[in-house]
Nucleic acid binder design. Structure first.
Length: 254
DNA sequence: ATGGTGGCGCGGCCA
């Protein structure tokens, strides 16, 4: 099973930049998208279907904001939009699909860049999401969790850890939450295979950040311990450019 | 400390 997580920064914008051609190249069996920035009726479902993927999407109440989707060639047993947490669901941030005994959860974590109230929301969201994951795991122990977490885990995951040490996305409290998640049996699959520095999945739009690889690793694919023996390959795909983020890939053995 | 860019929808807001 090949899985990609990708914050597309607007599905319609990505389509204008060749996203459908990339889908036709068969990059994965399942592609989890964040920030589709489109109401359900504005998602280009027919164009995506024509590339060979079925589409399940979940939009925010606010038009053109947030939203997640799962594009898949494998038929899911069921799909659940939202996670029952009121704050998450209003902003279209979580979608789940079950494939056999594997549960996939695709999440777009809040950003804290626009102010203290959004940072407070982010902390509440993190707490609720952690509780939600552990609740799902009780009945569905084989889980894949992926998405835009909007948090760098460690200094190795950010181009300038000193300058950003008090900046949202790299705050000690946020990094501690990542420690807690990864320490609770959710494996950071990219770091399972790759310990190298300068491996990023997002670059600021400002100041030529991407050209100079001044990025952040904020997009992740986690698996629970029962799937650890199935890990086959993981990589970040910075050469794919329809967005300010790039895709992150994971392959599991059959 | 500020400003720099880009998507969405048509105002600024959000990232």
């Amino acid at each position: 099973m090949r899985i990609i997580t990708y914050n597309v920064n607007g599905i319609r914008s990505a389509m204008k930049k060749g996203f459908a051609d990339w889908l036709r190249s068969d990059p994965a069996d399942i592609i989890c998208l964040q920030e589709i920035k489109a109401n359900a009726e504005d998602v280009p479902v027919a164009d995506i279907n024509a590339t060979g993927y079925e589409v399940f999407s979940y939009s925010a109440q606010k038009k053109g904001y947030s939203g997640v989707a799962i594009l898949t060639k494998l038929k899911p047993k069921n799909v659940i939009c939202g996670n029952g947490l009121q704050q998450s669901d209003a902003e279209g941030r979580v979608i789940r699909a079950d494939f056999g005994d594997i549960t996939l959860i695709n999440a777009y974590f809040p950003s804290g860049t626009s102010g203290e109230d959004r940072q407070a929301y982010k902390y509440q969201w993190l707490d609720e999401f952690f509780t939600y994951l552990d609740e799902v795991r009780k009945s569905r122990p084989k889980m894949i969790i992926c998405g835009d977490y909007n948090i760098c885990h460690k200094a190795i995951d950010i181009h300038d850890p000193v300058r950003n040490k008090n900046y949202t996305g790299f705050l000690p409290e946020e990094r501690a939450w990542m420690d807690k998640l990864f320490g609770n049996g959710y494996v950071d699959t990219f770091r399972h295979f790759n310990q190298e520095p300068h491996q990023y999945s997002w670059w600021s739009a400002f100041g030529g950040a991407r050209a100079n690889n001044k990025g952040w690793r904020i997009d992740y694919i986690n698996v629970t311990e029962p799937l650890k023996a199935k890990l086959k390959h993981a990589e970040i795909m910075p050469h794919i450019v329809h967005s300010d983020h790039c895709p992150v890939f994971l392959e599991l053995k059959k």
